[in-house]
Amino acid sequence: MTASPHNDPEPVVRFDNVGMRYGRGPEILRDLSFDLPRGSFQFLTGPSGAGKTSLLKLIYLAAKPSRGLISCFGRDVATLPRDELPDLRRRIGVVFQEFRLLNHLSVFDNVALPLRVAGKKRSDYAEDVAELLAWVGLGDKMTALPATLSGGEQQRVAIARAVVGQPEILIADEPTGNVDPEMGMRLLRLFAELNKLGTTIVIATHDLQLVRMVDAPVMTLANGHLHIRPPRRQRQREAELREAAHADPVQVDPTENVPEQTDIPEPADEDPTDALDAVARAMEMPDEDESDEEDRHG
């Protein structure tokens, strides 16, 4: 993810001067140009009604742009025939703000849905789904109906469903909107883990607390326009380079050697019985020192 668009040869998603309106209404998204590089991690923020969900819809192929070019996995969305949509959608995992779980299906069946619609046999995926559910701490709720679960549990079902098909992009719309801060952090760690495994992540949130946890690019939507703030480390590096350029004017690509890795601090208070914590421990992420946080404000 970079402030200057189109310098990645093979981004998973590329927007080029994209505009979007519903019907004959005003354009709610204007002149969006950016890349989602493979394996990147970014936040999407902005005030309510700024068009975050609309932008996500464009990315997960639930809507078409009114103008401009969107390419998804190298395919031009505008000319994509309908029968090729399912294949692309299977490479995209989405956690919807309102979950969109099927209320008549058990937790297990909900999570298995992407595998089932892809034509996989139950006997082939049953173990994997059960394992994933245990992994998100719902091993004992597999036969429960979504309506009997708490908001946080439903959220985890939605996340499990989004990742079960091992998507190349994971899009989460307000994934922490229904859970307490601690659970929000656990979920964030889950996303970071998936990112380490190579998944491109986009998290839409207006929870700035959450955004500060990860040193990742932040896309901010306001009045239909998109502003992209590079990660802190990149900004620091650019500042250093500028200083160096004053002393020794040699052109250096500022995007070079920017670590893509995202680190999330471990929360201090942990419930050791929770399966997610086991995951977090397994991830063994180094603690980020607190001075970084002050740096940002300074």
Partner: peptide
């Protein structure tokens, strides 16, 4: 529509 949309977004084909 809710179910159909969910199925579509999970990658279900029309014929499915």
């Amino acid at each position: 529509t809710d179910v159909i949309d969910a199925l579509h977004l999970c990658g279900a084909e029309d014929r499915f």
